[in-house]
Amino acid sequence: MSHFEDRQKGQEAKFAFDAEKKFKAEARRNKLLGIWAAELMSLSGDAANAYAAEVVAADFEEAGDGDVFRKVSADLKAKGVAVADDVIREKMATLVAVANQQIADEG
């Protein structure tokens, strides 16, 4: 029975590690997306970092990426920046790969 328990604990640890890695990658992606959108809205420095933090916080409103997408899309439109929805979604997909690579590189 000890072998079974060891295997179960190993699987639980892997699941926890994978969940933490996914959370970090999504948060990093959201930050990168916020910085990208901030640049499009001509924000820089502290204002760009503050906006990126708002995008990260927006992800806690509901499960999934919809809340982040809606925030960025609405903010860009409010600033008069014309970016198609599919461009935002494509950027999100690209940045999740970047975020995963950055986290992997950090160890």
Rank of each mutant, 00 (worst) to 15 (best):
M41H: 08
V72A: 04
F15Y: 10
D67C: 04
D6N: 13
R28Q: 07
A53E: 15
N30I: 04
K21Q: 15
M1L: 09
L32A: 00
E90P: 00
E106A: 15
L33C: 08
K22P: 00
S42D: 15
A74L: 06
D46I: 12
K21T: 14
E12V: 10
I88M: 09
W36A: 01
L33N: 03
V81G: 03
Q8A: 12
L33Q: 02
V56Q: 13
A37V: 04
E26N: 05
R89K: 15
M92G: 05
V83R: 03
E54W: 02
V81P: 03
D105I: 00
D86A: 02
R7Y: 11
S44K: 15
A25E: 14
W36V: 01
K21C: 10
A53C: 01
A84F: 02
D75P: 05
K77M: 08
K79H: 07
E39N: 12
G45K: 12
L32I: 05
M41F: 04
F17T: 08
A84G: 02
L95P: 00
V81E: 04
G80P: 07
Q102K: 06
A53H: 09
R70S: 11
D85A: 15
A74V: 03
E106D: 11
M1D: 08
V72R: 03
K21Y: 14
K21I: 10
D75I: 07
S73D: 15
K24R: 15
E39R: 12
A58R: 14
K14E: 12
E20N: 08
E61L: 11
K71R: 13
D105S: 11
A50L: 08
K21D: 13
D46G: 12
R29F: 01
D65R: 02
A38H: 05
